[in-house]
């Protein structure tokens, strides 16, 4: 087993996802298959190889420090599931 049901639960919490028991079992087995497949990578010799995080090597892409118009207030909040006055509203953190 690469990943246990408990680990699936931990990862799900990190990702803010909830699964039913049934889904958890199914996911655990599917993730195990996928992760087993990933083991293939261990065969590749990567000693001294710099990890590649960009397909094309660029550097120093900057913008100048100038202020441009922000979105209108209405447009900023127009997609909000819930807005109160000028704010987005969310339920409080329950301790």
């Amino acid at each position: 087993m690469k990943i246990t049901k408990e680990e699936v639960e931990y990862v799900a919490h990190l990702a803010r996802l909830d699964f039913s028991e049934e889904e958890k079992v199914k996911f655990t087995s599917q993730l195990n298959d996928i992760l087993m497949y990933m083991d293939k990578l261990n065969e590749a010799d990567t000693a001294g190889i710099e990890p590649m995080s960009h397909a094309i090597a660029l550097q120093n892409a900057f913008r100048e420090d100038t202020v441009k118009d922000s979105l209108s207030h209405e447009l900023s909040l127009s997609n909000a599931p819930e807005a109160r006055g000028p704010f987005f509203r969310v339920p409080k953190v329950i301790e």
């Binding site: 006055g85 987005f88 969310v90 409080k92």
Partner: peptide, 11 residues
């Protein structure tokens, strides 16, 4: 919010 179970967000 002190009275409601709400928080408000200013970005």
């Amino acid at each position: 919010d002190e009275h409601m179970p709400s928080s408000y967000i200013d970005l």
